[in-house]
Simulated assay, not measured.
Amino acid sequence: MRILHTSDWHIGRTFHGHSTLDALRGVLMSLVAEVSAREVDVVIVAGDVFDSAMPAADCYTLLTDTLVAIRDAGARVILTSGNHDSAARLGFQSRLLSDGITVVTDPASIGTPVTIDDESGPVHFYGIPYLEPALVRHLWDGVPVRTQRDALTHAMSLVRDDARARGGRTVAIAHCFAAGVDPTPHLECDIQQGGLDVVPLAVFDDVDYAALGHIHGRQRLSEHVRYAGAPLHYSFGEGSKPRGGWIIDMDATGVASIESFDLPIPRRLVTLTGTLDELLDPARFEDATDAWVFARYTDVAPQSDPMRRLQTRFAHCAKVVHAPDVIHDDGETSYASRLRATRSDLEVIDAFLTHVRNGVGASDAEREILREVVREREASDALV
């Protein structure tokens, strides 16, 4: 059996105010092409299918089109809900979906697998929807559930009990922040990623493969526990990481091989650093013209309207920050003490500008404007 592991589609997410729907559609159609070319039998989507609990109508359209395309390519599909999804909205149409598409959103179903047979027998897929401790603890009488660790530990115990009774090969699907550490008791929430506290890697022992979602970079936590990552770059911090997932081949005894696959990147992400004039120089950074750009301009003082100016150079400039190379050191002289040393309104304004602009006071042109404003104010006060 050949399995494709993907996750974190985040349908409907914006990128610095820009819609990602068209780009994601193209990438997901490339994923469908992988399913067809590699003759994949089962596609796993490990949570965060949507980006919000209330996705727009066109988000449902993209999801439906993608699921139907995967099914037409010959693969079964198993989806679970993540912390961004509304389990109710993601799962409401699950009973109406065509044969071969299963949506797992009900915590009460944990321990009941989707079983798919191949020539070597059954493979049991145990979907674990995102478990919010406060919302699931009432399901398990006598089981203390305060953290993600508690919830996943108990969920996996249900999986193991059922798997032992059934026999065969097993795949667990979960959406959580897993790590190869055992956190300090009662301090689990001190280690978090995306608002989820850590789940020890050992929780996923005793299954042939654990397909995880939540981390956006493809990662191997152990030979049998992996994150697929997101199909798109959703932040500049992800820009250096490839997009794709894992292909898992199973034989009669379990996992025979695992290999990564890459997905196309519709528009690459770059971070550019320099003075504003350097960034605007048409002879520089030519390879970033069509990229998403995060600009860090290093001028000592903040510049006027940097985003608009940079977008005339880079049409897809999405983020701009002022990151001066030199930080002004006031030494032991405080802003208050400098104010006390001023002798005129003009000096007060100059002291303020020096304070908020990294040690850079008013320019000659600015001082001339300020003098005129101060004179007008003084003349107006004299008439009162």
Score class of each variant (00 low, 15 high):
Q311I: 03
T312S: 10
R313G: 02
R313N: 04
R313S: 03
R313H: 04
F314T: 01
A315D: 12
A315Q: 12
A315C: 06
H316T: 01
H316S: 01
H316G: 01
H316K: 04
C317D: 02
A318V: 01
K319Y: 01
K319W: 01
K319D: 01
K319R: 15
V320A: 02
V320K: 02
V321S: 05
H322V: 03
A323K: 09
A323P: 02
A323R: 12
P324H: 09
P324N: 07
D325C: 04
D325F: 03
V326G: 06
V326M: 09
V326Y: 00
I327Q: 09
I327K: 08
H328R: 07
H328I: 09
D329Y: 07
D329R: 06
D329S: 13
D329M: 08
D329N: 13
D330R: 15
D330C: 13
D330Q: 14
D330K: 12
G331M: 10
G331C: 09
G331T: 05
E332S: 14
E332Y: 00
T333E: 13
T333S: 13
T333H: 10
T333A: 13
T333P: 02
S334R: 11
Y335P: 09
A336P: 02
A336I: 10
S337V: 00
S337T: 07
S337Q: 11
S337L: 00
R338P: 02
L339K: 00
L339A: 06
L339F: 14
R340E: 12
R340C: 01
R340I: 00
R340L: 08
A341N: 09
A341E: 14
T342N: 03
T342L: 05
T342V: 05
T342I: 04
T342H: 03
T342P: 01
R343P: 02
R343K: 15
S344V: 08
S344T: 15
S344N: 10
S344P: 09
S344E: 09
D345C: 13
D345N: 13
D345L: 15
D345Y: 12
L346C: 04
L346W: 05
L346D: 05
L346F: 03
